[in-house]
Design a protein around this nucleic acid. Structure first.
Length: 446
RNA sequence: UCCUCGCUAGCUCAAUCGGCAGAGCGAGCGGCUGUUAACCGCUAGGUUAGAGGUUCAAGUCCUCUGCGAGGAGCCA
């Protein structure tokens, strides 16, 4: 008897198969018991009829607690009434082995839970259909990233997580002791190392966890998140936008194609994702600023007006980003931010030193900044001047400055927040559900 | 760090002007051959976050503490 994956059940219609999994829900109808069984690949309804089983077995099936582990063998039938993911097929219970009857006090009911309770029970919450669907989308987003970049000739060279000093000197870092070497810090970016790697490999990316000790308490922030950072030699700002556009379009297409059942379960409006096809609109910061100032002046509600307050030179807040994304039905690039609000390593705009060659990619529907990148300063003396101006420790950047001495070229890169992309793909409220075990300012358990 | 809101049964939430502590789900028992978070009947389940105060009377009003939420700032 072959053990099958529930996700492939449609291939076995009319055949007798075995499914190994856990009881997600049970409904009994007297002489008939419906078990919704999940096996990791999907959810399938198993139907036990009193006449098909001996009395003791049927009785124990009727009393099976939620989450009991089972091995069930029986015929696969197509039935439109059968719930599940993908659904439409059910398994008749001919034989059942109860591997373990779960204890009856399983804390997660199938009803709604508050965030605090759900997160305290995250180790169990991930078994629920909604969380399973979201995390399956995450898996596909991450595999799509690698598929696309590997196909474009990028090399995945990961950068260190333990680092000697602040890379940007802006965000707060998690600190740890490092033997006799003093302090080490958890990386908030791999960019500087990526910049070294491109001079050996041309096009590279790192994809790993990133740590920010910022006290951000919003639905868009985690203290530990997975950031993709491609870096490309001989690439200017326009070339960078081309890469971002290709990547994000590819991710959306992959999720639409391979996670259709998950998106359907989540109730995602897929027509929104179908529009995620390049070219994306490219808007200058100057034009965006004009639009925002116009909105600010026209706003009459004092509360909203305060939130929309804007003048040239300011960085965008979340309300500003939302207003800009409302102008389009697909992601939008905003490029050419004021240098003063961006990092020291960003290349100045030719002829306009107050502006830099930076670009953010803003997702629609209020999901905000999913990618942030720039063309990097390639001139040694300019970079040194910037480091001095920022008051950064020059000796820590010795190796980074050296990159500009031996074959420096124009180069660009960006960072993409995986959880923000996953949340956007799924249409969920909070990015904490887009990672198996979220770390926030108030939570390191479980 | 600042602003706003919240904390009642295992879970999600009610409780009118300050007047007997309630429901659904979950758990237990019983019924039903097509359920979709099934449904129907019965049972058990409470230091209303903690401390103090006002009052004949506090889940409800006041003060403090704790915990949480999402918004600002910062950022992906």
């Amino acid at each position: 008897m072959s053990v099958i994956r529930v996700s492939e059940i449609s291939k076995y219609e009319g055949q007798e198969v075995t499914v190994q999994g856990w009881v997600y829900n049970r409904t009994d109808k007297g002489k008939l018991v419906f078990l919704l069984v999940r096996d990791g690949s999907g959810f399938v309804q198993c139907v036990a009829f009193k006449g098909d089983l001996d009395e003791a077995t049927f009785d124990s099936v009727m009393r099976l607690p939620q989450e009991s582990s089972v091995i069930i063998t029986g015929p696969v039938r197509a039935d439109k009434r059968a719930p599940g993911i993908p659904g439409g097929f059910e398994l008749g219970v001919k034989q059942i082995q109860i591997v373990q009857a779960a204890e009856a006090d399983y804390p997660m009911s199938l009803k709604d839970h508050g965030p605090d309770f759900a997160l305290d029970n995250r180790h169990l919450w991930i078994r629920m259909q909604s969380q399973w669907a979201i995390l399956r989308v995450r898996v596909r987003v991450m595999s799509a990233v690698r598929e696309y970049l590997d196909g474009q000739g990028f090399f995945n060279l990961d950068t260190p997580i333990l680092t000697p000093a602040a890379a940007e000197g802006t965000s707060t870092l998690f600190e740890t002791e490092y033997f006799d070497e003093g302090k080490a810090y958890l990386a908030q970016t791999g960019q500087l190392y990526n910049e070294a790697n491109i001079f050996a490999f041309g096009k590279v990316y790192c994809y790993g966890p990133t740590f920010r000790a910022e006290k951000s308490k919003t639905r868009r922030h985690l203290t530990e998140f997975w950031m993709l950072e491609p870096e490309i030699a001989f690439c200017d700002l326009d070339g960078l936008m081309d890469v971002e556009e290709g990547l994000v379009s590819f991710i959306a297409a992959a999720v639409l194609k391979d996670c259709a059942a998950e998106l359907k379960f989540l109730g995602r409006d897929t027509s929104v994702l179908e529009k995620v096809v390049g070219p994306f609109p490219r808007m200058s910061y100057d034009d965006a600023a004009k639009h925002l100032i116009d909105l600010y002046e026209k706003e009459t509600d004092p509360e909203k007006k305060e939130l929309l307050k804007f003048e040239w030179g300011m960085d965008f807040g979340a309300p500003h980003e939302t207003e800009i994304t409302k102008l389009y039905d697909r992601p939008v690039f905003v490029y050419g931010y004021p240098s003063a609000v961006k990092a020291f390593y960003m290349e100045p705009w030719p002829g306009r030193p107050e502006v830099c060659k930076s670009v953010d990619l803003l997702a629609p529907e209020g999901y905000g900044e999913i990618c942030g990148g720039s063309e990097r300063v390639s001139d040694h003396d300019l970079l040194l001047a910037r480091i001095r101006k920022e008051g950064l420790p020059e000796e820590a950047f010795h190796w980074y400055l050296q990159l500009r001495k031996y074959g420096s070229v124009p180069h660009s890169g960006f960072g993409m927040g995986t959880e923000r992309v996953v949340a956007w793909m799924c249409g969920i409220e909070h990015i904490r559900e887009a990672i198996p075990f979220p770390r926030t300012i108030k939570r390191v358990y479980p």
